[in-house]
Design a protein around this nucleic acid. Sequence first.
DNA 1: CGATTGCGCGAAACCGCTTTCACGAAATCG
DNA 2: CGATTTCGTGAAAGCGGTTTCGCGCAATCG
Lengths: 336, 336
Amino acid sequence: MASKSAPRATYAEIAKTAGVSEATVSRVLNGDENVHPDRTKAVNAAVKKLGYKKHRAASALASGRTGLIAVVIDDDLSIFADPFWATVTSGISRVLMENELQTLLMVTPLESVDGPVAHYLMGGEVDGAIFFQLHKDALIKRLRKQNLPIVITGTPHSRSDFPFVDTDSFGGALAATKHLFSRGCKHVGIITGDIDTTAGAARLDGYSQAYRESGHVPSKKLIAAGDWSMESGRAAMARLLEKGEGIDGVFTSNDLMAVGAMAAIEEAGLRVPEDIKVIGFDDSVVAQTARPALTSVRQDIVALGEAAAELMIAQLRGEEVEPRILKSELVIRETA
Amino acid sequence: MASKSAPRATYAEIAKTAGVSEATVSRVLNGDENVHPDRTKAVNAAVKKLGYKKHRAASALASGRTGLIAVVIDDDLSIFADPFWATVTSGISRVLMENELQTLLMVTPLESVDGPVAHYLMGGEVDGAIFFQLHKDALIKRLRKQNLPIVITGTPHSRSDFPFVDTDSFGGALAATKHLFSRGCKHVGIITGDIDTTAGAARLDGYSQAYRESGHVPSKKLIAAGDWSMESGRAAMARLLEKGEGIDGVFTSNDLMAVGAMAAIEEAGLRVPEDIKVIGFDDSVVAQTARPALTSVRQDIVALGEAAAELMIAQLRGEEVEPRILKSELVIRETA
DNA sequence: CGATTGCGCGAAACCGCTTTCACGAAATCG
DNA sequence: CGATTTCGTGAAAGCGGTTTCGCGCAATCG
């Protein structure tokens, strides 16, 4: 459709104006060391003069490298209404661009191992894929077998050796719970996220660990299950209150549930933080807009994306990569 | 990097097993009508049998069509912490995928007309570009001149003939303000967004229009400027209260400012909605988590993305396109 | 000092698909 | 019924890079 107002320079022209062969142009443009400095200079000059920009498709066809990295979002729970993934993605995109790579966004149900997405990824259309979430990793295992570089954002279930990046959920939960104790709470409860997710489990573990370290005795009655939603937080808190354990502090596994919990507390005629202190997780907008403002565990989400991209780039370079766990940090506001 | 475990079928093989020429294979695969049904069938059979998948790069090189649509986000205000754009993007991605197109995400400051992004877009690397926001449209004008299909999400400033999609800000603000009147408010104020944005201006216009239609007399003292942030909403509301116009209702141009306004109202010892009713705009998570729950103007954000993608596809087909304005809807909760 | 090695470089094949061109056969025309 | 169109098709020339191969030359070796 687009007309070629500026008839795009090619290797042929560069080669001619630089007085070298196209092969040499290619070498220079791909950083081959074994080229005489003089020619290198000549080529670079020609490139600048002609405003040359490499043609991706041609390059991809010849080399097999597309310069494209897929970011795959299983469109069930994900991006809708959750700023988290968007933020991660922007971090990824930034880093990839700096490395001459483009971000191909695929928001789609992951379906079977041979849905269209799977074929696309296996068909060599991209140089690598970064996945969000991970309920089923059959597809990923398959891709791995094909040597497609993969990075997972979030901790995978199987302890396969997938390269992944994640926030330190355990540490964050540990710190949050300890903070509640240090503020004088005696009976600290937890509202968990979906325990089937690794993040949900890790946050519960952190909470338990804090109990163990504090010398306090934990009670199963102080543990209530949520599913990350605000409504589940409200319901879980209501249950916690009913049990009459004298709960005076609660760590909720995300901010949304914290807000729900605060509503339940208020409905019970109690006050935050005077009667019950609350700490969330994520430090999302919601934490900042809540009243009273919510104390929460912050994750550096952009950094998470950047780390994912860096892991991908390392793989592309053929380096061995280790999973990366990012530190979380407690942001103290009014609720605890 | 990825090894070819399955040595990818090519036209050559298909042509051979179907007993036709490669040219015919191409015709069939690109929907050329002028091919004998028998051959068409033969080719399709061969394709299925061999599990053939077209090689994008090769196709792009030969045809000049990349099958890639860029989604460009000016990384200043945008994606960070704002679920809005992410949601739009997921709508775009879904529709593009259904049409065999891929979404290339570019999160980056738009800088000058000849930054790297500009070059990328002008270099024929993509078949079209969808832009979010629009502070400066110099780049876009330039791209348009090159015949690159463009769609803008949000209303552009210049009344150039860019194809764009947007939510009916004016109508939403009108409905919200009228609703406040109908609930008995006599002195309805507005906290505007950045007036330099078309959305900010349109929402103010809708508010003014409601005043005109209602027969009430508007007062400049009831208009306070915000900048979309929660803090600006709080400050604006404080000013509104000071002016002592007996304000009893306020329409804020987005949810974040509404939450800020509610905080200010509470700090002034007044109550929502008993003393002052509040309506926001966007119906974001924040509206749902606020207490009392915020009445707000909902936009169908996914639909907005889908519309953008559809406009793009129409252009790719060479059709003439009209801007598309999507209806907004008042979601009534507790604050008004 | 003749023989071997290594380095820098150009010629040319190639990546896989698209598209122009021309040709033979079938359909339409005068 | 010969002449002109129309239609379906294959051969082949690209599209714009990358990469292998081998050559000529200078450096190194015996």
